[in-house]
Design a protein around this nucleic acid. Structure first.
Lengths: 228, 228
DNA sequence: TCTGTTTATTAGCTTAGCCTAATACCCTGT
DNA sequence: ACAGGGTATTAGGCTAAGCTAATAAACAGA
């Protein structure tokens, strides 16, 4: 039992950001964290000092930070809260797919562990959130899917939309209108040269997706890691 | 449309406390507010200054404070949030009657208006919380029940348990075990002299309630203000 | 009425997190 | 090998909201 002293809202946000920025391995830089949290870089330097003192992150000056096992556990707990909340709000309270992120972003800092587990139970312990992202277990394990964006998908590949990015409601609604919701199976037909649009087939429909959008649409190989 | 700028958690707590302390009319004193929020009196003096500058309260030095109409509106909004959350957690997520207060206390600062209204809708717009307290409407109206404690109830009176106090989980559970839950109809049979226990009849059962407990058990005259 | 106690306020500090401006470090291109 | 540009950090401030200690006002009892 890790007696994690109560973390502040702001600390929880830092840990989440660092988790997302280091998910592909490597360090999270000061300026990347600052950009993600929309604050000035020196504020990050200050917090980084405090967080390394409490053992939640490892700091290599002028290089960046990584989560310690303890920090990673705390980050995954927040991500679990966030994603369970998103599923709950969507399924039980009729929230719109594009709107849940903002609400969950505030609630995740206020809910108790107990409430999250009650919500998860009421939902049948979901494994993916409404955007297709995997939900860490209460024990802190998360599915390591090999995610890539549609812009990087190989021609001819059979893929499933997972849709990691959940932060722009307008874009999410647009994607939903195109039928590119998480869980959708696609076949990559072709891609025009020089970062051109990608053409995909979804069932009997064919869609052309611009490069900008394709770079935001996270997908997984079919068969790789459960399909919702 | 009152463009109430985003209030901090702490301001919201002050307004709620002042509302409760002035509910029977009169002023809320610095030390009463301090006691209710479990902070030192000088901290209250400081916040009182800020709140009167923003027009949420009226301050009479050395006498106390009262809510302005604007402050009252904000307080009622918080109380609505709190009570809707309590009903929701109890009815939809199987929370225990005695445990909801603490969870709601944290969530009320994080939920959006929209979420509260969705919850209220899912519950069929409840009028009372699980402790029997009336829920303000979205428009900011609250039922003005004539509440008194069981210790003050007249002998022979026919009353209904309303149970204002929702802050001590152990006491609430004990009351529930005695069958003294909100909505229960009682007849006051007798009261021993010198602050002795009160005897009540609930249906076919007879109960003797000690003075200490009776002073915490808020009741309303039957017929006065709806009965749940 | 005066005096002592209680209660409220002011003064002055602390901590968390943010900010801007100034400085230090790293790295790449010549 | 080093100069310049781009990051990172340090220095120094600000605000919100808490604290303790000191002072001021109100009130109650003799």
């Amino acid at each position: 039992m890790t007696a994690t002293a109560q973390l502040t809202r702001s600390v929880e946000d830092y840990l989440k950001s660092i988790f997302h920025l280091t998910n592909q391995g490597g360090f999270a830089t000061t300026s990347d964290i600052a950009a993600m949290l929309e604050i000035a870089p020196p504020s990050v330097s200050g917090m980084v000092k405090r967080l390394s003192e409490t053992g939640l992150i490892e700091h290599v000056p002028y290089r960046g930070v990584q989560l310690t096992p303890q920090g990673r556990r705390a980050a995954l707990q927040m991500i679990r809260r966030h994603r369970i909340l998103e599923v709950y709000l969507t399924q039980q309270l009729g929230y719109d797919w594009g709107d849940v992120h903002e609400e969950a972003e505030r609630l995740e800092h206020a809910v108790s562990e107990k409430l999250i587990e009650k919500m998860a139970g009421a939902l049948g312990d979901p494994r993916y959130d409404p955007h297709g992202a995997p939900i860490p277990t209460a024990a802190g394990d998360i599915e390591e899917a090999e995610l890539f964006t549609l812009a990087d998908a190989k021609i001819g590949a059979s893929i499933i939309v997972r849709q990691g990015g959940d932060d722009d409601a307008a874009r999410l609604r647009y994607l939903a209108a195109l039928g590119l919701t998480p869980g959708t199976h696609l076949t990559v037909l072709e891609r025009q040269p020089f970062n051109g649009p990608t053409t995909v087939r979804s069932g009997s429909e064919t869609r052309v997706v611009g490069q900008e959008l394709a770079e935001q649409l996270w997908c997984a190989e079919v068969g790789g890691g459960g399909n919702r």
